[in-house]
Design a protein around this nucleic acid. Structure first.
Length: 422
RNA sequence: GGAGAGGUGGCAGAGUGGUCGAAUGCACUGGUCUUGAAAACCAGCGUACAGCAAUGUACCGGGGGUUCGAAUCCCUCCCUCUCCGCCA
């Protein structure tokens, strides 16, 4: 959520920048500012009345104390009237505050000035491409055939017990998944991140804090119970919410966590969702940083390089893309996506998304620090996948299929305990 | 699931109807003293909103109520702790 005062200060430039996200926020912004003006005026009136009321109450107290009960009683009527009108004003103020918030949550984060205009992922800019796409043997297979041939994943079984998009990993297929999780976590810990294992279910306040709610409720699985709980769509939600209402003492704060991720993915279909390409439950290792505003873009680069170094070790061909305005998420100011080449499908698969949210999330979270003048300021938050499992898994087995079997990259062998799947 | 206790500033902890945004201690910040440090002493030290400012308003777990006036009384919800039961 953008801060209303920041919107006031940067009205024109925000409107212009939001157009890069293909969003005309002019009406929302004008409306929000008008409501805020009204709110200020209302508060001033309410404060005046309350001041008067407080003074009267004090007088009445004094009069009682000095035994002038009659005079005190005379003042009570006036006090009652004041109270009634101030209540009405306060109710109006609360209503206005809610209206303003309802508008503000509809305005996406302002993109960084470097974000290119664009309609969709086709307009993303390739920053870097690493690793040669190796020529595969004849008859190379997509992963959904390999997982069956080698008995690594049972999609049918998952279908039976839960539904489509909930695969069951089997035998070495399960071990490979577990190895990747442990490997990613170790890489992140080595880079200075603290490991967490958070709950996989969060409350409404957390969903709001990171921006999944109220706008994207239909993307989440909701647990019917007396209080509203949601299955997490990413570890970003519990982790970032650790810092809700927190005043941080030092920067940076670096967290990593493995969690399963649950997504409704309503409306997806076709070969985009075949096999591991898009699931309702998948595993992901996430990295999150809380940073000083002046350092956040530097940190974004560091995080991008960190993810790149993991892909280098896994010997997967990948490219880094800067997302255009049209593909940028609601809360993000600047995002770099990683795609690995999946040789069996002959296409690029998104495996990581590294973003700087600037103070957009922090404002909702009330995640702040005290600056050198002792003033409260909003922190910047960043996060990225390091990494999302299923598509890495898919690319790994597709790219490394040989006549002898599926070869495991060196970096992963200490974790799998085997170097080939036959 | 049953019984009880409790939620106050960064922490500890007072406060049961008015002058309480809240004693006191610790922590923290600045100063005096000291060769330096410690100790001692002096001063400062919550957040949000409004205002150029002076200042005003709100906040003592959340919400509602009683009252001229609520941290304090009432209702309700949430949370924590202790004991018992159940349980991986």
């Amino acid at each position: 959520m953008l801060h209303i005062n920041k919107i006031r200060e940067n009205k024109e430039s925000y409107i212009a920048l939001l157009k890069v996200k293909n969003m005309d926020a002019t009406d929302l912004i004008i409306h929000a500012i008008a409501k805020d003006d009204e709110r200020k005026a209302t508060q001033q009136k309410a404060d005046e009345l309350l001041t008067k009321g407080n003074q009267l109450a004090k007088q009445i107290g004094e009069l009682y104390k000095t035994g002038k009960a009659a005079e005190a009683n005379a003042l009570k009527d006036e006090s009652s009237t004041i109270k009634e009108s101030s209540k009405a004003l306060q109710a109006k103020q609360a209503e206005l505050e809610k209206e303003i918030q309802d508008i503000l949550v509809q305005i996406p984060n302002v993109p960084h000035p470097s974000v290119p205009q664009g309609k969709s992922d086709e307009n993303n800019i390739t920053i870097k491409e690493v690793g040669a796409i190796s020529a595969l043997m004849k008859g190379a297979k997509p992963h959904w055939e390999l997982t069956t041939d080698y008995n690594l994943i049972d999609f049918e079984l998952g279908n039976k017990i839960t539904g489509a998009g909930f695969p069951v990993y089997v035998n070495k297929g399960a071990k490979l998944q577990r190895a990747l999780i442990a490997y990613f976590l170790d890489k992140n810990i080595a880079a200075g991140y603290t490991e967490y294992l958070p709950p996989h279910v969060v409350n409404e306040a957390s969903g709001f804090g990171t921006g999944q709610l109220p706008k994207f409720e239909e993307d989440l699985y909701k647990i019917p119970s007396d209080i509203d709980l949601y299955l997490i769509p990413t570890a970003e939600v519990p982790i970032t919410n650790f810092f809700r209402d927190v005043i941080v003492k030092g920067f940076p704060i670096k967290c990593t966590a493995y969690t399963p991720c649950f997504r409704r993915e309503a409306g997806s279909y076709g070969k985009e969702v075949r096999g591991l390409n898009r699931l309702h439950q998948f595993d992901k290792v996430e990295i999150v940083q809380i940073q000083h505003p002046e350092k956040s873009y530097e940190t974004l680069d560091v995080m991008v390089n960190h993810v790149a170094s993991i892909l280098n070790e896994l010997e997967l061909p990948y490219k880094i893309l800067q997302l255009c305005g049209g593909d940028l998420s609601f809360s993000s100011a600047l995002t770099f996506d990683f795609e690995v080449y999946s040789a069996g499908q002959e296409r690029w698969l998104e495996v990581s998304s590294v973003s700087n949210f600037e103070s957009y999330q922090a404002n909702r979270l009330k995640l702040r620090y005290k600056d050198e003048n002792g003033k409260m300021q909003l922190c910047h938050t960043l996060n990225g996948s390091a990494l999302a499992l299923p598509r890495i898994y898919a690319a790994l087995i597709e790219n490394n299929q040989t006549a002898e079997g599926i070869k495991i990259p060196k970096a992963l062998q200490p974790y799998t305990g085997f170097d080939i799947i036959k």
